[in-house]
Design a protein around this nucleic acid. Sequence first.
DNA 1: TTGCGGTTTAACCATTTGGTTAGCAAAGAT
DNA 2: ATCTTTGCTAACCAAATGGTTAAACCGCAA
Lengths: 204, 204
Amino acid sequence: MVKEKANQDTETQILNAAKDVFQKKGMDGARMQEIANEAGINKAMLHYYYRSKQLLFEAVFNNAFSLLAPELNKILNDDSAVEDKVRNFTSNYITFISKHPYLPNFIIQELNRNPKFFEKIQQNAAFPTLDKFKAQVALEVEKGILKPIDGEQLFINIISLNIFPFIATPLIKGLLKVDDKGFKQLMEKRKIAVSEFIINSIKK
Amino acid sequence: MVKEKANQDTETQILNAAKDVFQKKGMDGARMQEIANEAGINKAMLHYYYRSKQLLFEAVFNNAFSLLAPELNKILNDDSAVEDKVRNFTSNYITFISKHPYLPNFIIQELNRNPKFFEKIQQNAAFPTLDKFKAQVALEVEKGILKPIDGEQLFINIISLNIFPFIATPLIKGLLKVDDKGFKQLMEKRKIAVSEFIINSIKK
DNA sequence: TTGCGGTTTAACCATTTGGTTAGCAAAGAT
DNA sequence: ATCTTTGCTAACCAAATGGTTAAACCGCAA
């Protein structure tokens, strides 16, 4: 059927438009009409393919989380040493997020709005768990590679240092009085600065 | 006049109710009717005292920012040594934010929604600047008290480590599989863990 | 007691918004 | 050639929402 192609086309076109609008404006701020406009189609099509705003939103959200999860897994379920993980994750994550600037804020914001979402995405394949990372940190502490530190706290520190600046971009720009270009330069420096900062702190 | 008291009463009652609703649901998600209900008054009163949703929102936002700004100033414009600042700020901030859990997310979210807000609040008295802190860090680095580090990056690191967990609470709860009580315990530990982590990294 | 000012309310209004519907167009099946 | 299914649109609908208004209320001064 030729329709199947057209079908697929408009369906993904809707999803892409929805991604844009939802990630910029959030569930509450997004308007179905705006998504339709951005997709260049009739508003009724949104309901034809996704039934409701809620379901369209969930499609976008799952999509976004599926993009973020593998990034987290890099630091959680990879086999390299903690030090290497930190270096790789920091550099990779900042590169990754520069391509998807709205992503972390979107996920965190909507998770705050409706914490129950977590139950849904936990069923998602490749959902990150902390078990391996915790064991690994404990082992390296025991071996004397790392100073004593709790794996959970270390994990929180790593993602805080990497994610926060991209969530609080306007705040940081304002406090540091830098423009878009200056901010990007700061983030570029952080690819190394953050991992140095972390490793300085934990390596014996 | 007795009215002035009643006047003040309802006006602040409105502001308090608005604070609650706006901070939980954001500008887009908040409903004037819900604010009125929470304040126990007629919806028309909101407009009588604050003219529009936008103006009521701005009153709440300025109020919230005025609460956060002094916290930031503690680390920026205080006279103690960097190490002491880090210890005090970390401990104080986590205590402070536990009392205002919605605050940082609210500010950051709304700043993302409308970055122009910054221009307005910059006119606010006691708006934090980074100049003194940067100079101080440079000086302590020169003196050999601290390892070489950029003041701006250090500042970003400090606020990232302290603020992020409270913005991404549902994400962290989900990934670490802890409940409300477990999360609070983690944050309690962070009062010391975070400052140790930072100082470990920067002190020579 | 009456009149005046600020305060408060119920009812109302215009617009927005998510969602529906009836029908059209086009392509495959019979 | 006709029927059926599928993609698609214009027009429509009911509910929600920010905001307004006219009138009532109430303490006070004259």
